[in-house]
């Protein structure tokens, strides 16, 4: 090992301290706004204007109650739950079926279909937005939950196919043959044997779909207009627009907490899986 000069060691030490400081400062910049939001949601608007930093004098749930009932956040929450879950089920099921066939069968036009799906990952949403709006309108699905669920599921299919095709390829074909030997039909084989084996892949896609649909804004903005159908991000965006003039922020703060919590909790519980999944998604190149 080589000798280190004292000056070098001093320099390395200083760099270490500096790096640690940078991390801590950025950590505060990331976490503090959320923490501030979290406790401010318990304060009244007048309390907020009086002392912006202070913890609430009394931890009152008034804002949450008001948000949930009067500001319709409760409705938006259930709408988001319904839309997210329906999208998840539809997208995963259709996507898994297609991926299974693409990975395990051979048919004419197979590559064309596969790369056709993948091309969907490349197109920016804004290009198709206007025609999509009129398409959904023509189908009579504008301003319905069904319409937005179908669109969400269709937009999620490329990513689903990309991840799950790779996943199904790793499952040995001998398992399929054994299933057929036992007298399974093709569909039973898929449903009873292959789908359960693909659970890790389904989980990865599921987590990502959950996070992205739960947070989605632009499609909801274009495809939903009735206030009772709004999802959480759309509802909060509208609420912000209204509060801008009314200066009553309590409900909005509480609404923000309600939209943020589910994905944050999901992450804290499934942290390893999400981190791994991101890498899978990025390597598509």
């Amino acid at each position: 090992m080589h000798d280190e000069k004292p000056l070098d060691r001093l320099f390395a030490g200083a760099r270490r301290v500096l790096t640690q400081c940078v991390f801590m400062v950025y950590g505060v910049i990331v976490v503090f706004p959320m923490v501030w939001l979290g406790y401010t949601a318990f304060k009244s608007t007048s309390e907020l204007f009086a002392s912006a930093w202070a913890l609430p004098v009394e931890w009152k749930l008034d804002n949450f109650v008001e948000a949930w009932t009067e500001a319709q956040i409760g409705d938006f929450f259930w709408n988001s739950i319904f839309v997210t879950i329906s999208t998840l089920v539809l997208q995963l099921f259709l996507g898994a079926m297609a991926s299974y066939a693409l990975a395990k069968y051979r048919f004419r036009g197979q590559n064309l279909v596969y790369y056709g799906f993948l091309a969907g990952l490349m197109f920016p949403i804004f290009l198709g937005l206007v025609p999509l709006f009129f398409l959904v309108k023509t189908l009579g699905l504008l301003d319905t939950h069904l319409g937005i669920i179908l669109v969400y599921a269709a937009f999620g299919i490329p990513f689903t196919v990309f991840v799950l095709t790779a996943f199904f390829r790793t499952i040995p074909t001998t398992i399929m043959e054994a299933g057929i030997m036992d007298g399974c039909g093709h569909f039973t084989l898929f449903l009873r044997i292959m789908l359960p084996l693909a659970k890790p892949g389904l989980t990865t896609v599921g987590i990502f779909t959950f996070i992205s649909i739960w947070n989605e804004y632009i499609l909801a903005l274009v495809l939903l207009s009735s206030s009772h159908l709004r999802t959480l991000p759309l509802g909060i965006a509208v609420l912000q627009f209204v509060q801008f003039y009314e200066v009553d922020f309590g409900a909005l703060f509480a609404g923000l907490v309600i939209v943020m919590l589910p994905t944050l909790v999901c992450y804290i519980v499934l942290q390893e899986q999400i981190t791994k999944g991101i890498t899978v998604g990025a390597v598509k190149g």
């Binding site: 259709l94 079926m97 395990k104 279909v113 269709a154 937009f155 299919i157």
Partner: peptide, 22 residues
């Protein structure tokens, strides 16, 4: 695995969705 008809039945629903909305 060469059963193209079955494979198409599996691919078709997702593909129709994809073609219609994207």
């Amino acid at each position: 695995q060469n059963n193209g008809r079955v494979a198409l039945l599996f691919v078709l629903p997702a593909f129709l969705f994809y073609v219609t909305f994207l």
